[in-house]
Amino acid sequence: MGSMWTGEKVRLRGVEPEDWEGFRDLAQDTVDNRNADLITPPRSAESFRSWTAERAGRAPGGEAFRLVVEGLADRAFAGSVTVGETDGRAGRFRTGIEIARDHRRKGYAAEATRLVLTYMFAEQRHNKCEVEVYAFNEASLALHLGLGFVEEGRLRQHEFFAGSYHDVVLLGITADEHWATHPRPSVR
Protein backbone atom coordinates (compact mmCIF):
# COMPACT_ATOMS: atom_id res chain seq x y z
CA MET A 1 0.00 0.00 0.00
CA GLY A 2 1.38 3.41 -0.98
CA SER A 3 0.90 6.85 0.48
CA MET A 4 0.60 10.05 -1.52
CA TRP A 5 2.56 11.67 1.32
CA THR A 6 5.64 9.49 0.80
CA GLY A 7 8.14 9.81 -2.02
CA GLU A 8 11.44 8.07 -2.62
CA LYS A 9 13.37 10.33 -0.24
CA VAL A 10 10.90 12.03 2.11
CA ARG A 11 7.65 11.56 3.94
CA LEU A 12 5.36 14.45 4.78
CA ARG A 13 3.67 14.13 8.15
CA GLY A 14 1.82 16.19 10.69
CA VAL A 15 3.64 18.33 13.22
CA GLU A 16 4.32 16.55 16.53
CA PRO A 17 5.12 18.32 19.85
CA GLU A 18 8.64 16.83 19.85
CA ASP A 19 9.41 18.63 16.57
CA TRP A 20 10.00 21.87 18.49
CA GLU A 21 13.79 21.41 18.40
CA GLY A 22 13.76 21.03 14.61
CA PHE A 23 11.76 24.24 14.21
CA ARG A 24 14.06 26.02 16.68
CA ASP A 25 17.12 24.89 14.72
CA LEU A 26 15.58 26.14 11.45
CA ALA A 27 15.03 29.56 13.03
CA GLN A 28 18.57 29.99 14.37
CA ASP A 29 20.38 30.60 11.08
CA THR A 30 20.11 34.29 10.17
CA VAL A 31 21.02 33.76 6.50
CA ASP A 32 18.40 31.02 6.11
CA ASN A 33 15.76 33.16 7.80
CA ARG A 34 16.54 36.09 5.55
CA ASN A 35 16.27 33.87 2.45
CA ALA A 36 12.81 32.74 3.48
CA ASP A 37 11.41 35.67 5.42
CA LEU A 38 12.38 38.49 7.70
CA ILE A 39 14.71 38.18 10.67
CA THR A 40 13.00 38.29 14.05
CA PRO A 41 14.47 38.53 17.56
CA PRO A 42 15.53 35.24 19.20
CA ARG A 43 12.78 33.14 20.78
CA SER A 44 12.89 31.04 23.91
CA ALA A 45 12.81 27.26 23.91
CA GLU A 46 9.43 27.46 25.68
CA SER A 47 8.12 29.64 22.85
CA PHE A 48 9.07 26.95 20.33
CA ARG A 49 7.61 24.20 22.52
CA SER A 50 4.25 25.95 22.88
CA TRP A 51 4.14 27.04 19.21
CA THR A 52 4.85 23.49 18.04
CA ALA A 53 2.39 21.92 20.52
CA GLU A 54 -0.35 24.29 19.30
CA ARG A 55 0.32 23.31 15.67
CA ALA A 56 0.43 19.63 16.57
CA GLY A 57 -3.08 20.01 18.01
CA ARG A 58 -4.56 21.51 14.84
CA ALA A 59 -6.62 19.39 12.50
CA PRO A 60 -4.77 18.74 9.22
CA GLY A 61 -5.72 20.35 5.94
CA GLY A 62 -8.11 23.23 5.61
CA GLU A 63 -7.25 26.66 4.32
CA ALA A 64 -3.65 26.58 5.50
CA PHE A 65 -1.43 23.90 6.91
CA ARG A 66 2.16 22.99 7.73
CA LEU A 67 3.70 19.54 7.40
CA VAL A 68 7.04 18.21 8.57
CA VAL A 69 9.45 16.95 5.93
CA GLU A 70 11.01 13.77 7.25
CA GLY A 71 13.94 12.02 5.56
CA LEU A 72 13.12 8.38 4.85
CA ALA A 73 16.72 7.25 5.28
CA ASP A 74 16.97 8.32 8.92
CA ARG A 75 13.36 9.29 9.85
CA ALA A 76 14.80 12.63 11.01
CA PHE A 77 13.14 16.04 10.94
CA ALA A 78 14.46 17.61 7.73
CA GLY A 79 12.29 20.74 7.46
CA SER A 80 8.75 21.81 6.77
CA VAL A 81 6.42 22.68 3.92
CA THR A 82 3.47 25.04 4.16
CA VAL A 83 0.31 25.75 2.21
CA GLY A 84 -1.42 29.06 2.71
CA GLU A 85 -3.34 31.90 1.15
CA THR A 86 -5.72 29.49 -0.51
CA ASP A 87 -8.42 30.94 -2.74
CA GLY A 88 -11.02 28.26 -3.49
CA ARG A 89 -13.00 30.49 -5.84
CA ALA A 90 -10.02 31.29 -8.04
CA GLY A 91 -8.31 27.93 -7.43
CA ARG A 92 -5.00 29.38 -6.23
CA PHE A 93 -2.76 28.67 -3.27
CA ARG A 94 0.73 29.51 -2.08
CA THR A 95 3.37 27.19 -0.75
CA GLY A 96 6.70 27.48 0.99
CA ILE A 97 9.50 25.08 1.88
CA GLU A 98 12.42 25.15 4.31
CA ILE A 99 14.96 22.40 4.64
CA ALA A 100 17.56 22.16 7.42
CA ARG A 101 21.14 22.73 6.29
CA ASP A 102 22.29 19.16 6.98
CA HIS A 103 19.49 17.79 4.75
CA ARG A 104 20.05 20.04 1.74
CA ARG A 105 21.24 18.97 -1.70
CA LYS A 106 19.48 15.61 -1.31
CA GLY A 107 16.37 16.41 -3.35
CA TYR A 108 14.15 16.76 -0.27
CA ALA A 109 12.78 20.21 -1.12
CA ALA A 110 11.88 19.23 -4.68
CA GLU A 111 10.19 16.00 -3.65
CA ALA A 112 8.27 17.59 -0.76
CA THR A 113 7.05 20.38 -3.05
CA ARG A 114 5.97 17.85 -5.70
CA LEU A 115 4.00 15.90 -3.10
CA VAL A 116 2.19 19.04 -1.95
CA LEU A 117 1.47 20.13 -5.53
CA THR A 118 0.04 16.70 -6.33
CA TYR A 119 -2.23 16.82 -3.28
CA MET A 120 -3.46 20.35 -3.91
CA PHE A 121 -4.07 19.79 -7.64
CA ALA A 122 -5.47 16.24 -7.47
CA GLU A 123 -7.41 16.31 -4.21
CA GLN A 124 -8.28 19.94 -3.52
CA ARG A 125 -9.15 21.00 -7.10
CA HIS A 126 -6.77 23.94 -7.11
CA ASN A 127 -5.49 25.06 -10.50
CA LYS A 128 -2.46 27.19 -9.67
CA CYS A 129 0.31 27.44 -7.11
CA GLU A 130 2.16 30.69 -6.54
CA VAL A 131 5.39 31.40 -4.68
CA GLU A 132 7.31 34.55 -3.86
CA VAL A 133 11.10 34.28 -3.74
CA TYR A 134 13.64 36.97 -2.94
CA ALA A 135 15.62 37.68 -6.11
CA PHE A 136 18.93 36.97 -4.34
CA ASN A 137 17.77 33.48 -3.23
CA GLU A 138 19.27 31.64 -6.18
CA ALA A 139 18.78 28.17 -4.67
CA SER A 140 15.03 28.68 -4.23
CA LEU A 141 14.67 30.20 -7.69
CA ALA A 142 16.51 27.22 -9.21
CA LEU A 143 14.36 24.78 -7.22
CA HIS A 144 11.07 26.26 -8.39
CA LEU A 145 12.14 26.81 -11.99
CA GLY A 146 13.37 23.19 -12.04
CA LEU A 147 9.94 22.04 -10.86
CA GLY A 148 8.27 23.81 -13.78
CA PHE A 149 7.29 27.10 -12.14
CA VAL A 150 7.33 30.08 -14.49
CA GLU A 151 8.47 33.56 -13.55
CA GLU A 152 5.36 35.75 -13.73
CA GLY A 153 6.71 39.02 -12.49
CA ARG A 154 8.99 40.92 -10.19
CA LEU A 155 8.12 43.32 -7.39
CA ARG A 156 10.99 45.78 -7.56
CA GLN A 157 12.51 47.09 -4.31
CA HIS A 158 9.63 45.43 -2.50
CA GLU A 159 11.13 44.47 0.87
CA PHE A 160 13.55 46.35 3.10
CA PHE A 161 16.11 44.53 5.24
CA ALA A 162 19.87 44.29 5.68
CA GLY A 163 20.06 48.01 5.01
CA SER A 164 18.54 48.07 1.52
CA TYR A 165 15.53 47.22 -0.63
CA HIS A 166 15.21 43.86 -2.38
CA ASP A 167 13.19 42.53 -5.31
CA VAL A 168 10.68 39.70 -4.94
CA VAL A 169 10.22 37.29 -7.85
CA LEU A 170 6.70 35.95 -8.42
CA LEU A 171 6.51 32.40 -9.80
CA GLY A 172 3.59 30.16 -10.62
CA ILE A 173 2.71 26.72 -11.88
CA THR A 174 -0.67 25.51 -13.12
CA ALA A 175 -2.12 22.05 -12.63
CA ASP A 176 -1.76 21.34 -16.36
CA GLU A 177 1.91 22.33 -16.25
CA HIS A 178 2.45 20.04 -13.25
CA TRP A 179 0.63 17.08 -14.85
CA ALA A 180 2.66 17.50 -18.04
CA THR A 181 5.74 16.21 -16.20
CA HIS A 182 4.33 14.28 -13.22
CA PRO A 183 1.93 11.33 -13.05
CA ARG A 184 -1.51 11.75 -11.54
CA PRO A 185 -2.18 9.70 -8.42
CA SER A 186 -3.66 6.25 -8.92
CA VAL A 187 -7.11 5.30 -7.62
CA ARG A 188 -6.04 1.67 -7.28
Rank of each mutant, 00 (worst) to 15 (best):
V83S: 09
M4H: 14
R92M: 07
Q124V: 05
E16P: 06
F149Y: 10
E21M: 01
W51P: 10
R184M: 11
Q157L: 11
V168T: 13
G96K: 01
P17S: 02
I173A: 01
A64S: 11
Y134P: 07
N33Q: 14
H178Q: 10
I173T: 10
H144D: 05
E177N: 07
E18R: 15
D87C: 15
F161C: 08
V131C: 08
A45H: 12
A59P: 03
W179S: 04
A162H: 12
S3Q: 14
G14Q: 07
R104H: 11
A36H: 09
G84Y: 10
F65D: 10
W179R: 13
T113W: 02
S3P: 09
G57P: 02
L171A: 07
Y165D: 02
R49D: 05
R105M: 08
E46K: 15
R55Q: 09
E98F: 09
R58A: 10
G62V: 06
G7M: 04
F160G: 00
D176W: 14
L67S: 04
V187R: 15
H126Q: 01
A110V: 08
R24W: 08
A59W: 06
R154D: 00
T82V: 09
A110E: 02
H178D: 06
G7L: 02
S140Y: 07
F23C: 00
A175K: 13
N127L: 08
W179N: 06
I99P: 00
V133P: 06
S44N: 13
T118C: 11
A76M: 10
P41T: 10
R154N: 03
F65K: 05
F65S: 13
L141D: 04
R13N: 06
A90P: 07
M1F: 09
A112T: 14
E54Q: 14
A135K: 11
F77A: 03
V131K: 03
R125Q: 10
T174F: 03
F121Y: 03
T86K: 14
L143S: 04
G96L: 06
F48G: 03
E16K: 09
A73E: 12
R94C: 14
L115P: 00
K9Q: 12
G96M: 05
G71T: 10
E132N: 15
L115G: 00
A56F: 02
H158C: 10
Y119D: 13
L38F: 13
H103L: 05
R58G: 02
